[in-house]
C-alpha cells in the first residue's frame, strides 16, 4: 500500500499532558510525525492540534482510531479537501540583494518583517510544497537561518 502524506486535525480537551498522550501514542505504535502545531481554540476549553504524517490508508485508519481512543480527544478530522498553510522565517545578510529577497518573499505570500544592521528577516506563508520551493529559491542569497513552522489546515 502506498505511503501518502496526510494531515490530521485533532480537537482535544485543553488539559495538562494531552500533547504528551498524543505524541507518545505515535511513538509507541511506530507512527511518524512530520510536523505538529498546537494552539488553543479561541473562546473554548479545547485546543486544535494539526499533525502532518504519512502512511498507508490502513495505517491512517489506525492512527485515527487510536487518537479517538485517547480520553481527552474530542474529534479527529482526517483532511481530504483542505486548505493547507505553513509559515517560514528566513534570515539573510544585509549585503545580499535586498530587492530580490523582498520580491521572493512576496511571491510566496510574505514580505520583509525586520531589517537590522547586519541582517534582514523575511517571512513567507504558503502551501507546504510552495514553502519548500521558497526555501530552495532562497538558497542563492546565502541564508543564515531558516525556520519552518508546522502545517495548519482547514477543511474546505
Amino acid at each position: 500500500m502506498a505511503n501518502e502524506k496526510r494531515v490530521i486535525s485533532v480537537i482535544v480537551m485543553n488539559e495538562s499532558s494531552v500533547l504528551a498522550r498524543i505524541t507518545s501514542m505515535f511513538a509507541a505504535r511506530g507512527y511518524n510525525i512530520e510536523s505538529l502545531t498546537v494552539a488553543p481554540i479561541p473562546d473554548s476549553d479545547m485546543s486544535h492540534i494539526t499533525i502532518a504524517t504519512n502512511g498507508s490508508s490502513k495505517v491512517m485508519e489506525q492512527i485515527t482510531k487510536q487518537l479517538h481512543k485517547l480520553i481527552p480527544v474530542y474529534k479527529v478530522i482526517e483532511h481530504e479537501e483542505m486548505v493547507e498553510k505553513e509559515m517560514v522565517l528566513a534570515k539573510f545578510p544585509i549585503a545580499e540583494n535586498l530587492a530580490d529577497i523582498s520580491v521572493l518573499a512576496s511571491a510566496y505570500n510574505g514580505g520583509v518583517v525586520n531589517v537590522g544592521k547586519e541582517m534582514i528577516i523575511v517571512m513567507a506563508a504558503d502551501e507546504p510544497k510552495r514553502v519548500k520551493h521558497f526555501i530552495e529559491a532562497a538558497q542563492r542569497y546565502n541564508p543564515c537561518e531558516i525556520i519552518r513552522g508546522g502545517v495548519v489546515a482547514i477543511e474546505r
Partner: peptide
Amino acid sequence: IDPANIAK
C-alpha cells in the same frame, strides 16, 4: 466495543 480493534 473498541473501534481500534476492528480492521487492525
